[in-house]
Amino acid sequence: EDAPSSDDLEQFAKQFKQRRIKLGFTQADVGLALGTLYGNVFSQTTICRFEALQLSFKNMCKLKPLLNKWLEETDSSS
Rank of each mutant, 00 (worst) to 15 (best):
E1A: 08
E1N: 12
E1I: 15
D2Q: 15
D2S: 15
D2I: 15
D2K: 15
D2V: 15
A3Q: 15
P4I: 14
S5Y: 11
S5G: 15
S5R: 14
S6W: 15
D7L: 08
D7N: 06
D8S: 05
D8M: 12
D8Y: 01
D8A: 08
L9R: 02
L9M: 10
E10A: 08
E10G: 06
Q11E: 12
Q11L: 10
Q11G: 07
F12P: 04
F12I: 03
F12M: 02
A13G: 01
A13C: 14
A13I: 05
K14C: 07
K14Y: 07
K14Q: 13
Q15G: 08
Q15E: 10
Q15V: 10
Q15P: 01
F16G: 03
F16P: 01
F16Q: 03
K17N: 00
K17D: 00
K17E: 01
K17W: 00
K17G: 04
Q18I: 05
Q18W: 07
R19I: 08
R20T: 01
R20L: 03
I21W: 03
I21H: 02
I21G: 02
I21R: 06
L23H: 01
L23R: 06
F25I: 05
F25G: 01
F25E: 00
F25H: 00
T26K: 01
Q27T: 11
Q27R: 04
A28T: 11
A28K: 10
A28H: 07
A28L: 05
A28M: 09
D29I: 00
D29E: 14
D29K: 11
V30P: 01
V30M: 02
V30C: 06
L32W: 08
L32Y: 09
L32G: 05
L32I: 14
A33F: 10
A33E: 13
A33P: 02
L34H: 00
G35Y: 06
G35E: 10
T36D: 14
T36Y: 05
L37Y: 15
L37A: 11
L37S: 07
L37H: 14
L37R: 12
Y38D: 11
G39N: 08
G39H: 14
G39R: 08
N40I: 10
V41F: 05
V41A: 11
F42V: 13
F42D: 07
F42G: 03
S43Y: 05
Q44A: 14
Q44K: 13
Q44P: 14
Q44D: 15
T45H: 11
T46P: 03
T46V: 10
T46H: 07
I47E: 00
I47T: 00
C48Q: 13
C48Y: 06
C48D: 15
C48E: 15
R49W: 13
F50Q: 04
F50G: 02
E51N: 04
E51F: 01
E51P: 01
E51V: 03
E51H: 00
A52L: 07
A52E: 13
A52N: 15
A52W: 02
A52D: 13
A52F: 02
A52Q: 12
L53C: 12
L53T: 06
L53S: 13
L53I: 13
Q54D: 12
Q54H: 11
Q54N: 08
Q54L: 05
L55P: 01
L55Q: 02
L55T: 01
L55I: 00
L55C: 11
S56D: 12
S56L: 00
S56F: 02
S56E: 06
S56K: 06
F57T: 11
K58V: 07
K58T: 12
N59T: 09
N59S: 10
N59H: 14
M60I: 01
C61A: 12
C61S: 08
C61M: 11
C61Q: 12
K62H: 12
K62I: 01
L63C: 02
K64Y: 03
K64I: 01
K64P: 02
K64G: 00
K64D: 02
P65H: 08
L66C: 07
L66K: 06
L67Q: 00
L67I: 06
L67S: 01
N68G: 11
N68H: 14
N68W: 09
K69A: 09
K69L: 06
W70C: 01
W70G: 02
W70P: 00
W70T: 03
L71W: 03
L71A: 05
E72M: 13
E72R: 10
E72D: 12
E73F: 10
E73H: 11
E73D: 15
T74A: 14
T74H: 15
T74I: 04
D75T: 07
D75I: 11
D75G: 10
S76A: 10
S77M: 11
S77A: 13
S77R: 11
S78V: 12
S78T: 13
